[in-house]
Design a protein around this nucleic acid. Structure first.
Lengths: 305, 305
DNA sequence: CGTTCCCCTAGGGATCCCCTAGGGCTCCGG
DNA sequence: CCGGAGCCCTAGGGGATCCCTAGGGGAACG
């Protein structure tokens, strides 16, 4: 089996025209280098040096082999330094999972943070929804993520809550916003809810459903849409009300439903934003970086837990 | 220490997304591949795969590392096949030592033989004189050679005689060519001799000197020149006579001295053409090839020993 | 002709390479 | 829900390799 070590010994010997000096340069004893070169010759089936009295003389085969050997070692160096530059964030790709509406919570700013500090890296923020992200985590396609979680239990996952995001009731009808929304009134309201695909597993909707259920209600929604934006826009048109994260409401109301307002629920409900990764995994430097930056960003916007 | 073996295991694992299948492909047990990959990860300081339930998933570091690893292995393959093609004479340089006037004995034909059989190779016929060649052999710059030797002893050299080349007396004076040349008459003749640089060590001149010395003569030469051609030309002009190899005389007389002729010496003297290389050396395929071809050529022209 | 230089061989200790055996986790089908 | 299958892991051991020191021998040089 050809080895890089053999090539190193060969090149040092070639350049010094001497096994002894090659060994000195490499920090080995002379017979060690001699053995490596001999093994290489045996492997190639061609003598590379003629042992002549004092010193060694390269054969024409060695002349031909040398540039190839140099190329191999150069490629190996390059491979290692490529990884080294990944480790120091000079290059490489950082992939991180994010809940779907992270764009409303400064996801772009997070990417900007990373790129400012490490201009050479590529950044991938992956995830159309927290559940989608959890699936990717489970399959190993993601190392770590920041998502919204309903409870704090998920098989084999380490979940670290970092902030809580209040759920609020949004309506274009001012009379419904005069006091905190109770389960009773909520159950009677015509609702448009976002995240239709993940209606069963969306954390906000789980929390909401649980609250209504405990109060004895089992309500349906009037309208199902995917985007929070669409839901808010429908609220703005007075076609329904909705429940969404306070952060989303603050962001979207002025633009999409200027006449609507929001009010807390009674009891208050919260979505938990958390850092999630596989339990027991040692996180890469890139993941730790993203976790730190994402946590800072979120906690600057939303109430820390 | 980075090794090619680690890279091989890494790539197989990357492609199969599985250590087990990588091990199958490579013909190892699964823990062996696992260990190689782990060692590589430790060496690079970066995890390359996430071990997830069933199978492994490459990290972005692995994505970046892969093309580099492939380049290294490709370069290594190329290096090996470059040498393999030397071994099979598809390429590379064949260097062979030759006595200086080999051009008169079909040296060009020898090169043609090699190139015809192995169009890709470079051929170097090295040596301005047999002594010069012996020096290069001694220093290891040449592996093997065909040269003229006076005796059959040379320290540490393996000498295999393959042909003998008679020495003849060349003159433009027909009266001197009526009978074989004796030492007595030779000592009295005005001589032009070639190989002035190597006058002391040239094999033909050693043989000649020995013959004269044994007969009690200690003659000088009238003219010293380097080239046989010049010597023969001077003979053609009647300025002196010369002693040279019969092969050279046959070649050169018609062209350079049409009126001159040659006659044997009494006793007959011979230059010995021999294959020479370091004693105890194992010859490379290239050297064996050249020895065979050169021997065939020479023995087709000159009387085999 | 002795000294020096440099390669070789010999032999042994440490390391590594790769194996088998067995444990734990995940996924899947009954 | 539970057993089987798939896959990775660790543990431990045999054999090869790596690298060392010690010493021999040939070539170069004063």
């Amino acid at each position: 089996m050809l080895s890089l070590h053999q090539l190193t010994c060969f090149l040092a010997t070639y350049e010094h025209r001497s096994l002894t000096r090659a060994a000195e340069e490499l920090g080995y004893a002379q017979p060690s280098v001699s053995e490596q070169v001999r093994t290489l010759e045996r492997h190639l089936g061609v003598p590379l040096f003629r042992r002549v009295g004092r010193g060694v003389v390269p054969t024409t085969a060695a002349d031909t082999f040398r540039p190839h050997a140099e190329r191999v070692l150069a490629a190996a160096d390059e491979a290692q330094s490529a990884v080294a530059s990944i480790r120091s964030f000079e290059t490489g790709t950082i992939r991180f999972g994010m809940f779907g509406v992270a764009r409303l919570y400064g996801g772009a700013g997070l990417v900007a943070d990373v790129l400012e500090r490490y201009p050479g890296v590529r950044v991938e923020l992956v995830g159309r929804h927290s559940m989608d992200v959890q699936e990717n985590l489970r399959r190993g396609h993601l190392e770590a993520a920041m998502i919204a979680v309903a409870g704090l239990s998920s098989e084999g996952m380490a979940i670290t809550p970092i902030a809580r995001d209040e759920l609020v009731y949004v309506s274009a009808d001012p009379t419904r916003l005069t006091s905190p929304m109770t389960a009773k009134r909520l159950a009677e309201a015509p609702l448009v809810m976002a995240e239709s695909t993940y209606r069963d597993s969306d954390s906000a909707r789980i929390v909401l459903r649980r609250m209504l259920h405990e109060a004895g209600y089992n309500p349906g929604t009037r309208i199902e849409v995917e985007d929070v934006e669409t839901a808010v826009e429908l609220v703005g048109r007075g076609l329904a009300d909705t429940v969404t994260n306070k952060g989303a409401a603050v962001q979207l109301l002025p633009r999409l439903a200027p006449d609507a307002g929001w009010v807390s629920l009674r009891p208050r409900l919260y979505d938990t934003l958390a850092i999630v990764h596989r339990a027991g995994a040692t996180l890469s430097p890139a993941a730790r970086l993203m976790i730190e930056l994402a946590t800072q960003r979120i906690q600057a916007i939303i109430e820390p837990v």
